[in-house]
Design a binder for these strands. Sequence first.
DNA 1: CGAGTGCTTGATAGCCTTCAAACGTAGTGG
DNA 2: CCACTACGTTTGAAGGCTATCAAGCACTCG
Lengths: 243, 243
Amino acid sequence: MLLEHTVYADSGFAADSAAAHYAGDDALEPWLQRELLRLGWPLQRRRVRAKQHVFRAGQPRTALYLVHAGCFKTALVSEDGREKITGFRLRGDLLGLDALDMNAYACDAVALDTGELWEVPFARLRSELPQFQERITALLAREIRRDWTWMLALGTLGADQRVVTFLFDLAARLQALGFSGERLQLRMTRAELGNFLSLTLETVARSLSRLQARGLIEVAGREIVLRDRAALSGLLAAGGRVH
Amino acid sequence: MLLEHTVYADSGFAADSAAAHYAGDDALEPWLQRELLRLGWPLQRRRVRAKQHVFRAGQPRTALYLVHAGCFKTALVSEDGREKITGFRLRGDLLGLDALDMNAYACDAVALDTGELWEVPFARLRSELPQFQERITALLAREIRRDWTWMLALGTLGADQRVVTFLFDLAARLQALGFSGERLQLRMTRAELGNFLSLTLETVARSLSRLQARGLIEVAGREIVLRDRAALSGLLAAGGRVH
DNA sequence: CGAGTGCTTGATAGCCTTCAAACGTAGTGG
DNA sequence: CCACTACGTTTGAAGGCTATCAAGCACTCG
């Protein structure tokens, strides 16, 4: 089943939405759709199924992809096989941005469930639509801030706090996409979640069990319900290492 | 004493230099100097001393700064006081890039020693020099890849390996700036180093002591000499957690 | 129904953090 | 010039948190 969201996402960290952004900051997807229509360019759609690669690191960079439906992961793989998931991408997020200045993709992009991508004619848009360049710049800067916020979280928070931070972030993004924000449908395995949070899959499972035991959340496989946002926030406010 | 480097730095991760970059990829500083001269715009210089803030998160973003001399740190501070150093910036690096789409700076930038900054007239350059926009885009994308590489390192490597990775990265950058690449003059405290590597200052000190005890490096306060690059590389090749 | 995958939970070990003390150095004012 | 204070660094001892190893369970799919 495809996720047909009704609202559009801010790809940044939840806390970031309060900051002052690029003026005229409406969502990328409707803007792109409008502009492509106006220019009379055909919209190239691409359907993908779970576990299917959108692109791999090192492949020639042929296009940018806008996530229209589904959930994707972007991951870095080092020479010696260590993998690191750099983010989970939802509708409105752009895949391939990080390789904008290269001829090859810099990471792997993999679909976590059935999804649809829009091919973004980057070269033509950049040359013919000056606003597009600014949008791209804004998206890149936002991604940097998002990464930094996660680096802060991973470096200073304990396991439970990282998990809660993730749940809050995902809830905020899903809510911005028109979902409940209370009932989360995870699209990634515990291993992938742990990889992203720099934890083992066992630690993630244990953390979720602990939070459930305290009545803060409800866990049923990949469906998670946030039961007590206040208490969860309290867990975060407890503060982590200061180093 | 000011660091008057003779060559120019790639702000990216050392391993990144092998990748295919933006065509015409000569260093930012000489290019900028040339263009400003050509346009007849005066070069605004700003001198800073150790521990002096270039800007703070939340302040109105008045300018971008190109590091001309000295070493700087950029750091994120969360509401509850947790700090995370996002990078150490040397000559050729640009400060303030991450807030390009905002009216306020997104991080703190602090001088670690005496240094000099060049004020970059971003708005005018962007509107009058189309190439500049592309350069900025490339720098942003490169910063993202740099962050991801560090996220991978911090998430999968042990303390000693993180320290060695940092030393290699710094050595490569200093070498690109015309320094020896063997004898490193650290400009940050053990606490700052630990913060960046998501370790405590004690763990960093212990790690350096261990590496010295094995004869791999020589430590004298903030001066570090890489004695056995092969063995150090071997430490990294040993591999970390795979999660 | 069997194989495969993903999830949970337990026991143990290991690495890093925390707390603590001592040392060296640089800056400062008497 | 030197005592003195503040800061940075090193090292030790103990503990905590997470990783590792292992087993059992649930679910899906061929």
